[in-house]
Design a protein around this nucleic acid. Structure first.
Lengths: 231, 231
DNA sequence: CGCGCTTTGTGAACACGTGCACAACTGCAT
DNA sequence: ATGCAGTTGTGCACGTGTTCACAAAGCGCG
């Protein structure tokens, strides 16, 4: 390993798959698997083996020809590349149905995204405790973000309040937003946004479901997870 | 309009954007907007105007040059193409945190996906009522799917139970699955699967967040929603 | 009616992502 | 040492998606 490593750009599609590989590799590690081939990983991830190899090659040449990849080492490398060597506390805006479910979902904390706070604009919702975190008023947002060094915000408000929530998050200093509200958020350049729209997912399924009729069962695309983080 | 229209194939990426256009158009309609240009729609959807035109052109030539698109008509056409001319009842497997939030989320029913039922394997969870729907035992799944003609199932179980949930859904007759569990589901050919993995979304944000350091703020990809439904 | 303004629809170039196929390389057995 | 079986890393061709740029077409006005 020579001097300083140049930070190469990893294709968007690959970035979206790395977390999947990571999850599988961690699971394999707990099952005492020490080494895995691209073929094996591909099988578990539901993708093509060549794709796995190409994806992993963006991290560097960490495999051993004739053998495969050392699971623990790969886990370390993917974690490092994804920036998962430390926790990323998140703050949730909106303590409704979804916000509560997210705050109560242990998967976040377990995977390195502890809930640093949850806020709502409704005074009535403030004070209750969800998943060990007390709901605070949205006016405390800036204080939470700054004291806990939060850089990721989650918008779990009704659609009408989502843009305001995003604006407040940005003002508070958050630089990445995960948006669950069915609206297109406008954010300043340099802020990353990803959206998860449940109804959109169902509508896409509806499209393929509808096409089924009269066409007979047929393959309808792959199962990738390629979506950009906006600027 | 001549005889029977041949059903053309719409690109995956376009299918993923149509629901977004639809939501915006419906909103515009309620605000009495009768006509919209590709430019205007693109602005609201956060995409390129040429992309909007190309996307809409897959539906047919429904715009008027020099004028734009009639909102109400476009709404109708997109609905028709996405198969949203009738409701698609869904059944939710898993009445934990997330399942409850989904069942209680009105957005589903409002957008044409009423919750036909929610089931859990835990007898303790059976009987409680969420969002007006009573939780039933997973053994009733087949009965619910068949009596209510459900073709879309939602997996909202812990990861360890997800594959079993999917198997049961498929056996019960469901042909599309929306998976919230962080596992890669194995399904027979012909079954569509889309997955929503919250931790993966956060990990992707983490990647771009991490790259920010030392690189300075910069654009990090687009904000599309292109993901396949698997076969 | 004809002219100019506006906006669509689309051909063509380009960018991006995928998958094949194979050379390069490793480890093991003999 | 040498050969062989196995697996990676990657060049290349292909397919998909995006964007530009412009001809074709509608509308309104004089």
């Amino acid at each position: 390993m020579p001097v300083e490593r140049v930070r190469r750009r990893i294709p968007e599609a690959t970035v979206a798959r790395l977390p999947v590989y990571l999850r599988i590799l961690v699971e394999q590690a707990t099952e005492e698997v020490e080494c895995i081939s691209s073929e094996g990983l591909a099988e578990l991830a539901g993708v093509n083996a060549a794709k796995v190899r190409k994806d992993l090659s963006y991290l560097g040449s960490y495999g051993t020809r004739g053998v495969g990849y050392e699971v623990a080492f790969l886990v370390y490398q993917i974690r490092r590349e994804l920036g998962l060597t430390h926790d990323w506390p998140v703050v949730i805006v909106g303590a409704g149905n979804l916000g509560q479910a997210l705050a109560g979902y242990n998967g976040f904390g377990e995977r390195g995204f502890p809930v640093a706070g949850i806020v709502d604009i409704e005074p009535g919702k403030v004070g209750s405790v969800i998943g060990g975190v007390r709901v605070r008023h949205i006016d405390d947002l800036q204080q939470i973000v700054q004291s806990r060094r939060v850089s990721i915000g989650v918008v779990a408000t009704p659609p009408s309040a989502a843009q305001d929530a995003a604006d407040r998050l940005v003002r508070a200093g958050v630089t990445s937003i995960l948006n669950f509200a069915p609206v297109v958020l406008a954010v300043p350049r340099g802020i990353s946004v990803r959206k998860v729209d449940l109804a959109v997912e169902l509508q896409i399924l509806s499209y393929y479901e509808q096409r089924r009729v009269g066409v007979g069962l047929q393959a309808v695309g792959s199962n990738d997870s390629t979506r950009g983080a906006s600027a």
